[in-house]
């Protein structure tokens, strides 16, 4: 019998499958869209950190952080293949689609995790490498294996994994953590709940069928709307904090304040519109704006840092 004649499903069940994936399937395991956000926020953390880093080492640090994030994505897809298969948003992922076996995703994720941490440690510093290892562990084990299926607070606590990259970027330059890098962490940490809860409001059916205890499924949509508003009200001042703490300009503070107010406005809209298409549209609008908000806040921090460096004549 030729390998081509054997059904993938039979091979998977016996544990001897695999070897079917294309390069693109392995790239999909890395969650490239999430990775792009990680690269961007880590780069901003690195650039606004005091001191400097050799451009080659900076590029290596960003590469390692990106690969580490991708590795945790692959580990997530290994463990979550069963629930990914029943959600419309995720059923096309390589493992549930039968293009890559769960075992291959696991080995791929573990290999890249080890390489990214070791190279970051050898090339840059071991504090940043340890931080990256902890982030991968937090996302793959604490969030994916434990919190995601156990509590409606899954994305609140698990969101920390997505908030660590700018701190790792900062640590790559300074070899430490500081109040400024914690503020960068807090911006993403406070942003994550309203972002994902807005998504879960208009993708509730997906989470229900996958039996994931997302807040709208467990506590109801009204409670979710209250929580979205509460976190948005916390996010708005945290977004301005870099200016208040003096590591971003007043111009940044003003624009971040306007963006934070807009975020709250969209959250209020979600809170007030509770029926039919208007409710769904409000959630979709908040979800889309939240993506724009995070991009703009970090882009502003980046621009602010570049302008400050040009003014003082020393580009970090």
């Amino acid at each position: 019998m030729s390998l081509a004649e054997i059904q993938d499903t039979t091979l998977d069940e016996t544990g001897f499958g695999g070897g079917q994936g294309e390069v693109g399937d392995y790239i999909a395991l890395l969650k490239p869209r999430v990775m792009s956000l990680v690269i961007f926020t880590a780069f901003v953390g690195m650039l606004i950190a005091p001191g400097g880093i050799h451009p080659v080492l900076g590029a290596v640090a960003i590469l390692c952080i990106a690969i580490g994030a991708g590795a945790s994505g692959a580990l997530n897809m290994w463990y979550d293949a069963d629930i990914d298969a029943v959600m419309s948003r995720t059923k096309g992922r390589p493992v549930p689609a039968g293009k890559v076996t769960a075992h291959e995703a696991l080995v791929f994720g573990l290999t890249l995790s080890a390489f990214s941490v070791l190279v970051l440690g050898l090339a840059v510093n071991w504090f940043a490498a340890g931080f990256l290892a902890f982030t991968i562990f937090f996302y793959a084990v604490i969030y994916t294996m434990w919190l995601k299926r156990a509590t409606p607070q899954n994305i609140v606590i698990g969101g920390a994994a997505g908030a660590f990259p700018p701190m790792i970027g900062w640590a790559a330059v300074t070899g430490s953590a500081s109040l400024e890098s914690v503020v960068l962490f807090l911006i993403i940490f406070m942003w994550t709940p309203p972002h994902f809860w807005a998504l879960s409001l208009f993708k509730r059916g997906d989470y229900e069928s996958a039996r994931i205890p997302m807040l709208p499924v467990v506590a109801g949509e009204d409670a979710t709307r209250r929580q979205i508003l509460a976190y948005s009200l916390l996010l708005a001042p945290v977004g301005v904090a870099p200016a208040l703490l003096g590591f971003a300009s007043p111009v940044y503070g003003a624009v971040a304040g306007v963006l934070g107010a807009a975020f709250v406005w969209y959250a209020v809209k979600v809170f007030r519109e509770r029926e039919g298409d208007a409710a769904r549209n409000a959630a979709v609008q908040l979800f889309k704006f939240s993506l724009l908000y995070l991009f703009l806040v970090f882009a502003l921090l980046l621009g602010d840092s570049v302008v400050a460096s040009l003014v003082t004549g020393s580009l970090a």
């Binding site: 030729s2 390998l3 079917q20």
Partner: peptide, 11 residues
């Protein structure tokens, strides 16, 4: 006893 198809060889 294993023969790869052309598509599998390409991948």
């Amino acid at each position: 006893g294993i023969r790869l198809s052309d598509d599998q060889k390409r991948r």
